[in-house]
Amino acid sequence: MNLDIIKRLNAIQDESHFSGAVLVQQNSEALAETSYGFANRSEQIENQPSTRFGIASGCKLFTAIAICQLVEAGKLSFDTRLKECLSFSFPHFSEEVTVHHLLTHTSGIPDYFDEEVMDDFEELWIQTPMYQIRSLQDFLPLFQNQPMKLKVGERFHYNNAGYILLGLIVEQVSEQKFADYIEQNIFKKAGMVDSGYFEFDSLPSRTALGYLDFSDGTWKTNIYSLPVKGGSDGGAFVTVRDMANLWKALFNHQLLSEDYTCKLLTPHIYSDDENSFYGYGVWIEKKGDSILKYHIMGYDPGVSFHSAYYPENDIQSVICSNKSEGAYDMFKGIEEEVLKIPYKEKTDERKKN
């Protein structure tokens, strides 16, 4: 363990009251592995490195890997049109929308949670109770009959609904439930033994509850803030060790061939953020002509998550938190301490996830 990193993480936790787990690895050797706060505040059960945390949109990468696997198997292509691979009705969607557009957030379709319109994710469940959302099809009434938001391919616009459609494509093409496909073809192959798509009303052991903190010192769990079961746009649970295993499996070509791994990790679209691009399900930050990092993140009520792989140094960082804020500060602290990357003022990372 690197004591300087641990000291830096402890200092950040003292200031921000971070709750969660952190893992930093280089060449498969742990530089730092630690945890803070409680997985269950009522019972005073502490978080551990083996605790399972929700990662919100961080698992869009799993969906993108699944699509690439199916393309590699010849069961569809990146140019396959939405109308050719899904049997559901989308009366106002352009017929030009392809799998590639959905993967890169350039489809222009409406989103069920549009961050340009809504600030509070909980607003979604006023008309549609969250306990009714247990399958990908349950999301469709939230957006399938709305008009296009943008022209196809017009620009990058982060879109959760597009990844719901990608999950439905996985189901239709593979003839498996989305969660079953991911668990068999990604989690199992990557050695992610503790990860899964769990339902809030039947969580397994060692799973952290998500917490929302209020200015008066009170708090509540996020059980009524999110769909009862996550899907292809977000909501899986992982441990920090499992997430590190995912990065290793991806770059060792255990999940995709080298060719399709490159397709996944190609900077397909500029994301309107300095040096930041989007591949398939993953953010890519460049430094000149080289890749500085591959990065995924997730924010939900009671969830904050960041994880990155730095190819030049073969370093992986994983930060899982069961609070709405906190992962970003730990993430940037690690970059400053380990990689000497200067701290940038925090933007609203939730607008990118």
Rank of each mutant, 00 (worst) to 15 (best):
S42K: 12
N10M: 00
V238L: 07
I164N: 03
M192Y: 06
R52K: 10
P141V: 11
G235F: 05
S94T: 02
F305E: 05
T128K: 15
G281Y: 11
T51S: 09
K75W: 12
V338Q: 04
Y224V: 05
W283C: 09
Y112D: 12
V152Y: 10
G58N: 09
V152E: 11
F53E: 04
S304E: 09
S321P: 04
K220P: 01
K286Q: 11
I223E: 02
S89P: 02
I296W: 00
R52E: 03
L256T: 01
Q316W: 02
Q176K: 13
S324R: 03
K177N: 14
A249Q: 01
L76S: 10
G210A: 00
F156G: 07
D216K: 14
G298W: 08
C320H: 08
L76D: 12
M148Q: 13
S202Y: 13
A64V: 07
L255H: 09
T51W: 07
G288M: 01
F62Q: 00
D79P: 05
P49C: 03
G210V: 02
Y224G: 11
L82W: 06
F18A: 06
S290N: 07
T239Q: 05
I5N: 08
S290C: 12
Q69V: 08
L166I: 07
G302S: 00
D233E: 15
N27S: 12
L70D: 09
S42T: 13
L292W: 02
